[in-house]
Design a protein around this nucleic acid. Structure first.
Lengths: 242, 242
DNA sequence: AAGACGATAGGTGTATACATTTTATCGCCC
DNA sequence: GGGCGATAAAATGTATACACCTATCGTCTT
């Protein structure tokens, strides 16, 4: 749901005439989301002809998109046998969170080292305030969840940007790109857990303001690890029930 | 240098009839290495027509390769403006090492948790023995460096495989894929440093055998960080001299 | 002379045609 | 009835054609 900056358009850099994305670029977004949402069975082959017909396009832009996704690692490619959806063991989902905890921790450390720009500060404060509101209001659960999900993304995104490292951003992207494990499908945690983690957001922000490098990294690591825990609980509960 | 398993051929999985790679797949390897070696100027546009002519191919396989590399993040793509070589700030090289230290540390931890298979044990012991030989022999410097470089790769690769996480491997790949910073061009360290790091290899292996999870992770992190230090020294020395 | 406008050449995006390889089908033999 | 091989169907890899976009250069206007 963040559109991803593989083609430098989607993220509208404020200003003016963003060139209209090409068919292939649009398809990359579309297909990536489809794979992450588990629309295609893991390991299944993707038929270029069928896909092209369904989309009213020729094979050329479809292949272009598939090739990019293969480069991202979401699809595998075998010569003369086309593209298949990457299969992912359950353990990889856990490992992804551990890796992500390290990566986001590093981002927090870098952000603390460099200090936050005014713009970043505003963004984070906005995210925190929106989170406060979303969690205090007593309204509908689903709506609240969606609202908080947005502020959560905003917070993490802001810190990744503040860290400034393209590489770290790429790593986090990689960790979130596990087929069939799109956070959307899984994040339905206890309200108490969400509240606690929101408090952690506040603590992380405080550490960043203090330029407390060690605390920023440690807190962020623990924070993501806590998300991992909730995730594991949810997964195993589902596993038991079917 | 490691061929990279984006198309699942290159890495010969032991056994039998590996299907001959397609032109595009071969091009991916070729162009990736070219970009990493800095053959193309950073930020420069890549002209599909010229490249096709030089390679005696049509634009189709060339584009296929470029799209995959764009997916990997080595190239950027702008609609109607084609592919450009990703530019990388110097700070990113450092960040790449920090990220890699965390990733390989995680791999070591996972390997320690799971324990080493007999095959892995053999591979690592072979790498360590070969390293011992390469560092004790008194022969030509360049040859020794190349020999040790191989054993070094073998060691790290074995542990990544032992960790078993595709994701962690991908992250390490990502960290090594910094255009113009191919390790090859830079690794020319003091013999004393290399000897010390080889000792660290031994220590890491011992921790893995002990199933000492914490030590394995910590030692590996420190080990990669030490490489980072040597790298920084080399870079700044070069920076000073020209 | 500086800047706006338009023509033109070059480059990319997409469609289509064809070659090669893989996969499925059918018939045959055991 | 089941396995094996030839053949046909389908799918992928590559080449080529063309439409559209971009960029550059020259011209014209002010």
């Amino acid at each position: 749901m963040d559109g991803q900056a593989q083609d430098e358009d989607s993220a509208g850099h404020a200003g003016g005439a963003t060139t209209r994305p090409t068919h292939a670029a649009w398809l990359v977004e579309h297909l990536r989301q489809a794979v992450l949402d588990g629309v295609f069975a893991p390991g299944s082959r993707i038929n270029e002809v069928h896909l092209s017909r369904d989309l009213n396009l020729s094979r050329t832009p479809v292949r272009a998109a598939l090739q990019m996704l293969a480069g991202e690692g979401l699809l595998n490619h075998l010569p003369n046998r086309g593209f298949t959806v990457r299969e992912v063991r359950l353990s990889e989902i856990v490992e992804a969170y551990e890796m992500r905890a390290l990566a986001e921790g590093l981002a927090a450390r870098l952000a603390a080292e460099q200090g936050l720009s005014d713009a970043t500060r505003r963004t984070i404060e906005e995210a925190l305030a929106a989170g406060d509101r979303a969690l205090s209001d007593g309204d509908a659960r689903e709506e609240r969840r969606a609202a908080y999900s947005r502020t959560n993304r905003m917070f993490h995104h802001a810190i990744l940007d503040a860290g400034g490292s393209q590489l770290v951003r790429d790593v986090v992207r990689l960790c979130q790109r596990i087929p069939q494990a799109s956070a959307h499908n899984v994040v339905a945690f206890d309200l108490a857990d969400v509240r606690r983690r929101h408090e952690e957001h506040h603590a992380i922000y405080a550490a960043l303001l203090d330029r407390d490098v060690g605390a920023a990294e440690a807190l962020m690591r623990a924070h993501v690890a806590s998300v991992e825990l909730s995730m594991i609980r949810t997964l195993s509960r589902r596993g038991r029930q079917g």
